[in-house]
Design a binder for these strands. Sequence first.
DNA 1: AATCCGGGGTC
DNA 2: GACCCAGGATT
Length: 351
Amino acid sequence: MQITWVTALLNWFQLHQRELPWRQTKDPYAIWVSEIMLQQTRVETVVPYYRRFLERFPTVEHLAKAQIDEVLKLWEGLGYYTRAKNLHRAAQVIQQEYQSVFPRSHSEVLALPGIGDYTAGAIMSIAYGQPFPAIDGNVLRVIARLQLVQKDISLPQTKTEVAAFLKGVFPLEQASDFTQALMELGALVCLPMTPKCTLCPIQVHCQAKQRNMQQELPIKSKKTLPKREKRYLAIIQQGDKILMNKRPMAGLLGGLWEFPGVESKNKQDFVQNFKRQFGLTIIPKVHKLDTSHVFSHRIWEMKVYHSELVSGEVTTAADLHWIPIDQLNTIAIPSAFQKIKDSLLLGGKLC
DNA sequence: AATCCGGGGTC
DNA sequence: GACCCAGGATT
């Protein structure tokens, strides 16, 4: 009996898997938290966030009763902040609908906010040992090469076909290891640009390698280029305090804090838009610094002005607060503004 | 099916 | 710079 590629992969995983904090548990809550953090985010980035999060919120109930602001603070710098909000909401659903016991069925897990096909499959297989495939970027790449999938992997249909293929080969007694092994192979060996085929445990089964097409696969359509946005920011100080705006919960960087700013063409436009957005009349005084921040679909080119507050009534659209400078580290500020915050802290009060 | 939603590592 | 990463929700 010839050894199957599934067995070869599982054997390789036993020998070469990394020691990761979420591999020391089968607690579905802990697995869930790790999978949400790992969405579009590298393992090394996640590890310290994961440890802090599980220490602060060791169970669903701890998370369910937390304030969203504290959850966002723990998520600060990790990005895709909707993940944190959905995690929090789902914890409350689990508390109320399931008496704080993490649901066991695929349909119930899939119905939780923030859990899609991938994460549902990952939880079902990794935590519960059930044969549901978890198809992420790693798995799509591995299978595209193994099976010579020459369709665009960003098409939903391609994912459906990969799911059907995986269901047909799923090892029923080792569902957890199989799911993790596929992703681990993609992360350590079957790399996007320069796959390490000589180290690959399933190289003899790989159709792409047989044809020397590893570099061409998978096929992925190009994403649209990010839009450039000119953004003017106001640093407004009164004594030891600085005026900060809490962004609306929905949308970009929702619920996080910013130095109040507006998209504007030029300095005059800045003052006008600022008045419209925040209800405050300001005079930009000192051009402190220029900085840019790249998002997936947007580039902010920011001009930062120390500004004088003249007058105004705060609009309901804004959520402005005077924050003591030594308490800036207690609110959730996204990476886009960290350079500005640092320059403020270094520069002291009168800059 | 297309678009929005972050941030950081790598080459 | 370009590419990618343990994707999901919305329209």
